[in-house]
Design a protein around this nucleic acid. Structure first.
Lengths: 227, 227
DNA sequence: ATATGTGAAAAGTTTCACAGCC
DNA sequence: GGCTGTGAAACTTTTCACATAT
């Protein structure tokens, strides 16, 4: 119940910090943060589990369990401190620090991602971009010079990068992921609509398949239609 | 066990077709389809639950349960017909038909989405695009003339549209969604990083928040780091 | 008075293990 | 032999309901 920095609860592992957050809670964590940042901007200083939940379509008990699992406490009769929650979740997610990001594939989607304001707002900084198309190499896209993909490994030796955004054609995605993996990149946000295989274990991948999301939407509509 | 078109199982509802597929199964449905389409292109005619599952990181029993819940049967000792499965899942998802789609917001992201090949490949056809910026109105983006957002309602009376892609700034998203809802659009793929509220019930929304995905990735990396 | 934190129950999901079919 | 279909067990997640804190 201490008010200071959030601690991972009593803890039972030998190593430091192992909060062991469930998958279900993890999937909601970023949603809480987005809502809390919105509340903070709107000037709220506290929030109750029931209103935070209502905003996200989550049961109030669920919200309290999730926050409890993260070691975040509220005050009975009052609610949770918005700023405390926001800061703590950012620490847990790792978005309190700055992340170096590179972009592979500067097609239409890649260019849009290079200019996406939301990334920088959350601490993600685009440090370099790569493509194989000769006519793009050397040009500036969103203020960043496009490098030849051949320079990938040598560039990664020079700059501090943890994450890569992959926006290349499906056929090239696996090879690009392999090279990023070997070069020591720790996380990949993959926009290529394929299931990339991971050789070793020290690499995380999050997939975003835009056509898949539109298919999910179509299915929702179809389900509603034959209610 | 019939070989013909897949049927929603015995069925207990009064109305036609109500397969009642679980949320968990639903979330995997599009992944099965993507993998099956890949297998089809590679020339496979049958697939076993264990290999389909391995490709997607899913237990083989899970795969059989999912397909069973959809009314899709395999052949013991052989496996599932790739083409039958592909076609049946497309029918279930509703992506066997053509969908009319409009785009609201022709910024960098909107332009990239307008030109995204994967949409048309799955039956989604962009019929019109809208923006409020005077300098964009009347220009062609990916072969489609950008219309004034004021023309939204009048245009929707003329063309057959079920889905809308919303790629406008956060501050404008709610108002755009309200207008789309009133105009009778059935589904919205929302790229604005806000939780839009739905007034009535006959509208589905799927959210894609790109910064959120990058935060999820950062969290995965952080979790691995303190293993 | 109001909202948290949490045991306990309920609901949902995954995995095991094996009978039955090809 | 090999693979599906599925009861039953194991596990996870959600919800209820209320004691406890401010």
């Amino acid at each position: 119940m201490s008010k200071s920095s959030p601690r991972p609860k009593p803890s039972q592992s030998s190593k430091e910090s192992a909060p062991k957050v469930s998958k279900a809670t993890t999937s909601r964590l970023v949603l809480y943060l987005r809502e809390l940042q919105q509340l903070e901007r709107s000037g709220y200083s506290t929030v109750r589990s029931i209103s935070l939940g209502k905003q996200l379509g989550i049961n109030d008990s669920q919200v309290r369990r999730d926050l409890g699992a993260l070691g975040l406490a509220g005050r009975p009769g009052v609610g949770y401190s918005v700023s405390e929650l926001t800061q703590s979740i950012r620490v847990i997610l790792g978005t309190d620090r700055k992340w170096g990001v590179i972009l592979i594939g500067v097609g239409h989607l890649g260019q849009a991602l290079a200019g996406y304001r939301g990334f920088a707002e959350q601490g993600f900084h685009l440090l370099a971009s790569f493509d194989t198309a000769k006519e793009k190499i050397g040009t500036k896209v969103m203020g960043i010079t496009v490098l030849s993909l051949e320079k990938l490994e040598s560039t990664l030796l020079k700059i501090q990068v943890q994450l890569a955004i992959v926006a290349v054609p499906s056929a090239e995605a696996q090879e690009v992921v392999n090279r990023l993996s070997r070069a020591g990149v720790e996380g990949i946000l993959n926009f290529a609509p394929v299931n990339v295989k991971l050789q070793q274990g020290n690499l995380s991948v999050v997939n975003v398949d835009l056509a898949l999301e539109l298919q999910r939407l179509a299915f929702e509509v179809v389900k509603k239609d034959d209610e």
